[in-house]
Amino acid sequence: MHTQPDTHSASTQQTITLISHKLCPYVQRAAIVLAEKGIEFERVYIDLANKPDWFLNISPLGKTPVLLTGQQAIFESSAICEYLDDVFKPGLHPEDPVTRARHRGWMEFGSSVLNAIGGYYNAKDGDRLNHQAGLIQQKFEQLEAEISDGPFFNGQHFSMVDAVFAPVFRYFDLFDQISETDFFASAPRVRQWRNHLSRCESVQHAVAENYTQMLADFVLQRQSELSKKITNELLPS
């Protein structure tokens, strides 16, 4: 961990529960922030294909994550992460207002990379697959021009942008095994950043140990061009 929670905050006395889905990258963001701040929390997993009524009552958009703190439910990962950063100090955002605003912009950029990744694993033919791979590479090239010399996005300190991109990079633990594309060929600093984040305990513990196998099964079910590259060895036993 890279930060310590504010033990004087009244909210630290409340039970915190993270309503989760096992593959959701937005859940991972919240779990990573909670871990980086040393906040103890419980996780409750739901099936997004069969959402229980109690979940729909607390998640207006029907999405994970939802954070339960005391009697309150906070939905949407960005709202959850901002709440945690406001309440549990020190913060993961930079102090400088302009830098902080730019970080929030790059967090949104992270969501756009996730959208491109979704287009990649859902592509129905080779041309579309290659097109989406090119979009992802372009986005990493944009990142390459922005990130620091590391080890984190903004230098020596873990930030909210790191919490956003760690789940993005985790997809490539599978893609590296089934794709011939080197997504980081033109982004060596992004590659180093990815590798460093993968060694952080908060990132490692944000998912189950068999996450990559579950992701392979998920991609297989897409019946997409990428699905054809999934072998039995990659699937859950």
Rank of each mutant, 00 (worst) to 15 (best):
Lys89Arg: 13
Glu144Lys: 07
Tyr26Glu: 04
Gln28His: 14
Leu23Asn: 03
Pro5Gln: 12
Gly91Gln: 09
Ile39Pro: 00
Asn154Leu: 11
Asp182Ile: 10
Gly150Leu: 04
Glu233Gly: 08
Glu233Ser: 14
Leu135Cys: 04
Ser237His: 09
Asp176Glu: 14
Asn130Val: 06
Asn232Arg: 13
Pro188Ser: 06
Arg128His: 14
Gly150Met: 09
Val164Trp: 08
Pro151Ile: 12
Ile58Lys: 01
Phe109Arg: 01
Asp96Trp: 13
Ser148Leu: 06
Val207Thr: 15
Glu141Gly: 01
Phe158Gln: 00
Ser111Pro: 00
Gln223Gly: 03
Leu234His: 01
Leu143Gly: 03
Lys37Gly: 04
Gly118Phe: 14
Gln13Asp: 10
Met107Trp: 05
Glu42Met: 09
Arg199Val: 12
Ala163Ile: 04
Asn57Asp: 12
Gln142Arg: 08
Glu233Tyr: 13
Arg222Pro: 00
Ile39Met: 05
Leu129Met: 08
Asn50Phe: 13
Thr17Tyr: 02
Ser78Pro: 00
Gly62Asp: 05
Cys81Ile: 12
Lys124Trp: 08
Ile136Lys: 05
Glu146Gly: 01
Val33Trp: 07
Arg191Tyr: 10
Pro151Met: 15
Leu174Met: 08
Arg194Lys: 11
Lys89Ile: 07
Ser224Ala: 08
His103Leu: 13
Leu18Ala: 04
Ile16His: 09
Ala145Phe: 05
His205Glu: 09
Ala116Trp: 08
His21Trp: 12
Asn50Asp: 15
Leu234Trp: 01
Gln138Leu: 11
Ile178Cys: 10
Met160Lys: 01
Val44Ile: 15
Gln221Asp: 11
Leu143Pro: 00
Ala166Cys: 07
Glu36Gln: 15
Gly62Thr: 01
Ile46Leu: 09
Pro236Ala: 13
Gly150His: 07
Phe88Lys: 03
Tyr171Lys: 02
Thr69Met: 09
Glu108Val: 03
Ala101Val: 03
Phe175Tyr: 10
Gln28Thr: 02
Arg102Gly: 00
Glu225Cys: 07
Ala163Val: 05
Val161Pro: 03
Ile39Tyr: 06
Arg189Trp: 02
Ile136Met: 11
Tyr121Trp: 15
Cys200Gln: 15
Thr7Glu: 08
Thr17Gly: 01
Thr3Ala: 05
Pro167Cys: 06
Ser227Gly: 02
Val164Lys: 13
Thr99Phe: 08
Cys24Gly: 02
Val87Ser: 04
Leu92Phe: 12
Ala208Trp: 03
Glu209Lys: 10
Ile58Val: 12
Thr15Arg: 11
His21Thr: 03
Ala185Arg: 10
Ser148Phe: 10
Pro25Ser: 09
Gln71His: 08
Gln14Asp: 07
Gly110Arg: 00
Gly134Tyr: 05
Ala187Ser: 14
Tyr121Phe: 15
Ala31Arg: 05
Gln28Trp: 11
Leu61Asp: 04
Asn50Arg: 15
Met1Gln: 12
Ala163Asn: 06
Gln192Pro: 00
His205Lys: 15
Glu42His: 14
His103Phe: 11
Ala185Trp: 06
Ala35Val: 02
Ser179Pro: 04
Glu180Pro: 03
Leu226Glu: 02
Glu180Gln: 14
Asp125Ile: 08
Ala187Leu: 04
Gly134Trp: 14
Ser159Asn: 01
Asp53Arg: 10
Arg104Phe: 07
Val66Asn: 00
Met1Tyr: 11
